[in-house]
Design a protein around this nucleic acid. Structure first.
Lengths: 224, 224
DNA sequence: CGGCATCCATTTTGATACTG
DNA sequence: CAGTATCAAAATGGATGCCG
């Protein structure tokens, strides 16, 4: 089973040799918000069969982008995490996401799955480092039965799956509302203002929240 | 013939629905340095059959990322160019390239093809906007029978195929030397210093050239 | 649950031959 | 040169079955 390659001495092609196959970058997207178990990965990637998932994981492991870990007690169950090399694909994945937010989102189709983690990663894609200068805050997001948190520290952001230890502020909303925010049919601020989302915690942290993310104005590709 | 999709309401997945198929991002990479004719695209993408190239181009055209143009006189031949939406994939492609420069380059294999344009795009990937503050210069690169130019204007860079109208400086080298620079077995400055590359033109422009690009230190993925 | 193996229907792709 | 047409080889997806 020879590995397929573009056979080009080019940085882009070499990267795509490693992560350009179908599902691979989405697998990495899943892991960018923290380690995940096999079944969680399957759940996040409907359509990816168990066999292909195993193949992809083994490939990424062999190539040093992913490694197998054992979740800390009380879980003690095996999971997959990104190595440093894998983590550093974050900027590339987020660049693809930024492009998609501007040029490809549109409405949610009835056949589209949706997971809150994708929107949380979208926050990271839209994070405005300059607007966060001097801010140090942890926000917890509760959506349906999923919890995420964003840790902001003076121009840097980290978005992880799971609860925060001591969040400065907590924002809670339904999955539907988050879908609306993702597609920019409403802003997070508007959702909070009209009660579709509830926010609590440190007033100053909440006040600064709105300015931290700069969403691109959606554009149509067909009319240029 | 239904188009395959991940069926996810996620910006990354939507982007990959459009440009995630094999060869597509490399096709866009080719066009990032300017319009190209059908046969030039084939030449840059060995292994991509003519049938698939036609399919990909038609798809990208239909999706509004590429449009067909007629090259200005005296060429007057049909070519393909990126639309605004297509151009804006530049940051994503360059992010993949930056990752590859750090984590995936290694040596050139005997089976690897190489085109100077890829290295020129690599320059764009490594461009350090802060280091270019206040600089306005056009550099022309001659490698083998290919010519490119980089136009730098106070923190922005544009790298295009073809000669510059009035370059401030010209750098010339063989393809082998450029391969060495790409793989970081030697720096551009060193190549100029030891005569492997020749540079001429405005002294000030040449003096600032070296600081403009920050290459990542190559790292191994297997030993972390 | 985690993970690999197997079988099979569909798609994608790669390589080449062919046409205006 | 710019593509179409054709066909063989891979890759994918989906279902299942197995084993610890």
């Amino acid at each position: 089973m020879e590995q397929r390659t573009y056979n080009q001495y080019c940085a882009t092609a070499r990267t795509l040799d490693l992560v350009g196959e179908r599902w691979t970058l989405l697998l990495i997207r899943e892991l960018l918000t923290g380690p995940k178990r096999y079944s969680d990965l399957q759940a996040g990637l409907r359509g990816l069969g168990t066999g292909l998932l195993a193949t992809r994981l083994k490939h990424l492991e062999r190539e040093g982008l992913v490694h197998k870990v054992t979740l800390p007690p009380p879980a003690r169950t095996p999971a997959y995490a990104l190595t440093e090399a894998g983590q550093e694909l974050g900027p590339a994945v987020l660049a693809l996401a930024r492009w998609g937010l501007k040029w490809a989102m549109g409405e949610r189709r009835t056949t589209d799955t949706f997971h809150p983690g994708w929107a949380v990663l979208g926050l990271r894609a839209c994070f405005d480092a300059e607007a966060a200068a001097g801010l140090r805050a942890v926000y917890e997001f509760r959506v349906g039965d999923e919890v995420f948190h964003a840790r902001i520290d003076d121009g840097t952001i980290e978005t992880l799956h799971g609860p925060a230890r001591r969040p400065d502020a907590t924002i809670e909303m339904s999955e539907e509302v988050l879908v609306g925010v993702t597609g920019q049919s409403r802003t997070l601020a508007a959702a909070i203002a009209d009660g579709a989302a509830s926010a609590s915690g440190d007033t100053e942290a909440l006040r600064r929240l709105n300015g931290l993310f700069r969403l691109p104005s959606p554009r149509s590709r067909t009319s240029d």
